[in-house]
Each structure stands twice: as C-alpha cells, then as structure tokens.
Simulated assay, not measured.
Amino acid sequence: MLTLVRSLWRLPAPPDASPATGWDRAFVALVAVLAVVETVLRPDLDGRWLTLATFLVWLPTLLARRTQPLLMAAVFAVVVAVEMVVGWASDGHEPDDLNTAVVGLLIPYSLTRWARGRDLVPGLGLFLLVAGTSLVAQPLPPADRIGGSAVVVAAAAVGAALRSRSMLRTRQLDVVRQQERERLARDLHDTVAHHLTAIAISAQAGLAVADTRPEAARDALRRIDEEATRTLAETRKVVRMLRTEDEAADRPLDDLAGLAVTAGAGPSVEVHLADDLDDLSPTVAAALQRIAQEAVANARRHAQEASSVRVEVCRRHDDVELVVTDDGRPTARSARGFGIVGMTERATLLGGTLAAGPAAGGGWRVTATLPAEGGR
C-alpha cells in the first residue's frame, strides 16, 4: 500500500490541463440555477437553505477542476464539515443533500484525471473521508451505501483511465517528434554535407591556383556556384518533405546518376546503374540515392590521395545492392561517424543491411543491400 501511495505521489501533472472556458462557466451557472430551483421546489428538505448556501460556496471551484483540483476538494471538505457542524448544532442531525449535488462526483474524477501526484493523494484522501463519513452518518440501507461507494470508485476510475490514455498519447507524440528530428538531421546531413564538401574542395583548389592560373580559379568559382545552387535546391526539398507525407516523391533514383563527377577538384565519381531498376519501390530508390550521396561525400571528404570513386547499383534476386568504393590510401577512417550511422539507419528501416570498412585492395568500401520491394 505504501508503495502505491509513493508511486501516486510522484505522478506528474498531465500536459493537457486547460483553464476554464466559457462552456465551463455556463455549466456552473446552470447547476447553480438548478440547485436554487430544487431548493425552492422541495420544502421537505431538512436544512435546505444551509445546504444550498454551502453548495453555492463550493460550486465555483468547479472552474478550477483541471488546473487546481486539490482546491476543489479542500473547499468541498470545509463546506461539508461546516454544514454538518451547523446542522448538528441546530437540530441534532445532518442536513439533507440536494440531488444537484451529484456534480460532486467531478471531484474524484478531476483528481485522478488532472491532479499531480502530491495533490492527488491528499485530495482523494479528503474526499473519501468526507464521502465515507456522510455515508455512515446518514440513515441509509446497506445497498445504498454500497451503491454510493461504487459510484465514487467508478468516477475515480474513469478519470484514471482517461489520464492514462492522455499520457500514452503524449508519449506517442514524443516518439514521433523524436523520429522526425532524427529524420530531419539525417536528411540535412545527407544533403548539405555532400554539397558543402564539394564547395570546400573547390575553394581550396581555387585558392591554390589563384596566383598562377586565374582561369582555374574561375572554374573553381563556377563549381562553387553550382554546388551552392544545388545545396539550396536540396534544402528546399527537405523543407517540402517535412510539409508532405510522401518523402519519396522528391527522391527519384535518377538523382543518383547526378552524383557523377568527371572533372574538377577532388576524385572523379563514376556511377553505374543496372538496367533492371525501373520497378524499384520509390522508398527504396530514395534510400539508395541518399546512401550513395553520403558515401560519395565521405569518400571525397576523407579518402586521401583518392583519384576515383565508383558507385554501382544492381539487382541480386529479390534485393538491390549498392556498392561505393574509392581508391584512396587507407586511413584511420571510423565507421562510427554520423554519416555511417545515418546510412545504417536508412538501410535498417527498410529491412536491409549496410557494411562499411576498408576494401580488400585498398581504399574504402560501402555496401548496402535493400529489399527491392521495401516500402511498398
């Protein structure tokens, strides 16, 4: 029991609690009118005006049932205690309850639905103490006492169930947001990093020959301009992707052929695509293009003394295989960088695999194997 209380005490407040609205105020006003009408129409109620007065003192706290449910429970306990003391002092018994007071069931509901743990425990304890005392003090048959207790428990259970559903929904949204952030980071890395690498290489080459070969420097500037334009276009694609549901629409496999570079600073890039790739799933085509783009960018960035990078895509039965190799001098390149992580995530999400490491004959090799029908 103590463990349960401690667990409840640590509960955070749900994030969906909102202040009172116009509908809430209208509801409170309507209940107040009904309570007055009932009091007037039922002259047989003992202590009816005292009951009405204490009820109207507590009723406005319903407006704070989402943001301050403990206040509602505390005021309820105080007014009921005052009502009982005054009733017993005046005529020796507790005043009768209004039928309108059934809205008091919103107290256990609101506590289990919106209260943080440190408010839930004392608030629910106060309400159960008051409700239990009232059930015992009134001359009720056992069936009514059992029914009243069941109704209170049901109200609290409904609030707890809706709270659990809300918290589950919040966690699901947090997971979706995290996945979206990871996807955005991966796409920005894949697109921007690739073109910025080309810009950096071209700028370094231009600076190296600016004094001796002005025409080569002008060629470098043209390449920088082209890469900057592509970077802007790719960034816009990422933004469009975030605004649409179809990620693959802006990722055609034809873009993979655009990775080929035959001249300029840095190693050349050769792209060889098999002829039987037309029926690939758009999602698989997008993943191949992104993985190849990142692998080429890594090769141009890290491969020392590399003269060429080769990209091959072919079918292997029900799979499609992408191989990117370079002829650079073996270095201490790590397979743990963000680029490798992003490529591996893309392959894994489609049920494929990715391996990256030194090639047998020197250089670096990235091999991705994806199911051809993945994502359909």
Rank of each mutant, 00 (worst) to 15 (best):
S149I: 12
W9S: 00
R48A: 02
P122Q: 01
P14G: 05
V85A: 15
A216D: 06
G159N: 05
A161S: 10
A292E: 02
R223H: 15
A228D: 07
L11E: 01
T170V: 01
E94T: 13
E226Y: 13
E305A: 11
L45M: 11
P108E: 10
L111R: 05
A286F: 03
S281W: 05
G328C: 14
A285H: 04
T353L: 07
R243N: 13
T325F: 00
V103S: 13
A53L: 14
V238F: 13
C314A: 09
L207N: 07
M84W: 15
R290S: 04
R218M: 13
S134Q: 11
T100R: 09
V209Y: 04
A216L: 12
G22T: 11
L105P: 01
S307W: 03
A355M: 08
P139E: 06
T244R: 15
A297N: 02
G117V: 03
A53C: 00
L232C: 12
L120C: 12
A220C: 13
S202I: 08
T54C: 02
L8G: 05
G363K: 06
P358N: 04
D119W: 03
I107G: 02
L168A: 13
W364L: 08
R6H: 11
H195G: 00
A13M: 08
V341L: 14
A347Y: 06
L34V: 11
A155Q: 08
T61Y: 01
T353K: 07
V151L: 15
A101I: 10
P267T: 06
R65S: 14
A260K: 06
A17W: 03
R218K: 15
T61A: 05
Q68T: 07
V103H: 05
A217S: 07
P214V: 08
G342I: 07
A248E: 09
T283K: 00
R251T: 04
G117S: 06
L188M: 14
L34W: 10
A73V: 03
A303R: 02
A208Y: 13
T212W: 05
A20R: 07
T191E: 08
A89H: 13
